[in-house]
Design a protein around this nucleic acid. Sequence first.
RNA 1: GGGCCUGUAGCUCAGUCAGGUAGAGCGUCGGACUUUUAAUCCGAUGGUCGCGGGUUCGAACCCCGUCAGGCCCGCCA
Length: 533
Amino acid sequence: MHWTDVMAERLAQQGQEHIIATGITPSGEFHIGHLREILTGDMITRAANKAGLKAELVFVVDNADPLRKVYPFLDESYREFIGQQLGAIPAPDSEGKPDWIRFEQEGWTYGDHFLTPFLDALKQIGVEPRLIPNLEAYRSGMFADATKRCCDDIETVKEIIERVSSRELPEGWFPWQPLNSKKSLDGVTVTGYDYPLVHWKDEHGEHGSSNIIKGEGKLPWRLDWPAKWGHNGVTCEPFGKDHGASGGSYDTGKELSVFMGHAPPLPLTYEWISLRGQGAMSSSTGNTVGPIEALELVPPQILRFLIANSKPNKAIEFDTGMGLVNLADEYERLCSRDFETELDDESKSRRQRVQIEDAQAALRLSMISEEDSNEATAVSFRHLALLAQIKDDDEAVWESLRGSGAIESPTSLLRDRLARMRAWIKSSHFPEDMRIQIMTEPNQDAIERLEKHQRDLLPVLLACFEDAPWDVSGITAAIKSVAEQAEAPMKDVYRTCYAVFMGAERGPRLAPILCNCDQEVICQLISRCVSMS
RNA sequence: GGGCCUGUAGCUCAGUCAGGUAGAGCGUCGGACUUUUAAUCCGAUGGUCGCGGGUUCGAACCCCGUCAGGCCCGCCA
């Protein structure tokens, strides 16, 4: 059974209506790691709805969280904002400096700045959750009840956190962090409590009172999370393995949730996504591939497929090179399979059936909208990558595909895919193995691997190429005339050609590539191979 | 110190929750297609299931131990 269906089954045991929650702090550039959080939630939601439940995906934007430090992409002037809430400070401009003008005129905040492009990407990927900006929830008093309960019984709250997480809370710990005189959550000491006011003094020597109902502060993380479960009615939430560790915030949240008066959500811990060969993704080191960037390279279905096809507890290594080609081709192959017929085959073992069913489920979850069909494009990524490099003009690509009978006319799906393919080829992510390159130096190994009678074709090849009109048909004719003059099979001629031009045994159609090269340079290459043989 | 996850074919992984002959895809190798879109089709190859014990008629799967890698227990998904 697919992992999403397992979750749906568990949810069904608990009730009919579900809120599946995801939450991310917009502290920096979003990356595909964040995509796992939201897609995991989205896929559970889909599976639950398919199982006849009523499920909704929500995305809690943790813009009440404070700025932790001056990240490398920020100007030093952000130092004054440390400790202040992400939804209440200006966004960085192109130089990383606070954009006061947009902040004051449009209310454009730090959180908005990072969230908005991510939401655009999500839309393309087919995820449109209900947004719950956390700062606004605080300000509208949504956290008041839970907060009151905690402040009224600090000892119980403390006991739960200290026992479950086995860490000691500092002296003077209070279940509400007030904003100080500089709107910061740091360096504040609570001096008294008189609901709804929490009295404080800060490190600047100022005194004041924080109104819980108006959200003049926030709950510490370990309380904030279970409180959100309560007022958002969350019944299921996937989260990263950092929260899932024993004694971690889910463990304390579970008990605190009951203390606050509601059942904790069904958890699902997922593993991190790392960049192949570069370790974990991190916004602060700049070691990221953003969802936007990823979408420029591959269609959104492939990104969904990556998540759908990996069990949550499996770490994913995102590979923007050959790995992506293989992933995309695997997706393409699955699209063209006929699962129904395969499942009708009685001789299939239980395991084989499970594999087929899981592949089917993963494919269905890869669709952008549930009404889509997974039409196969009949063109592999590998093949398209090749054509896109050989032919600068889109029309020529379609012409070639028509000629080989792969398509009759390009679908919008294919047009879209070609556009992304061209972006990929231009980017630094495109794998060198896929890049078509004509030799600049003779490849001695390849020449030596040729049979003698194949090497003997080299002088003939040189003669024919020197006289050839330098266009596609001229070069094609020249290759053909080599075979005629030498009375050799075409197979040998091609072998020789690929050895000379690409240092390989086989390769893509040569004429369209060679006509983009300089005739004299090509002939010199052949001539050097001749003298070598 | 406590805990979590992972370890199965060259690679990526299913299969572990409900024990019943070790599976897929990729790769590799071979063949076919007689001017080759790195294509496509067909066939073959491939594993002491990290290691040791236990339970069982029977263990990749359950139990105990152990090794290796990754991670968490300080608000980074």
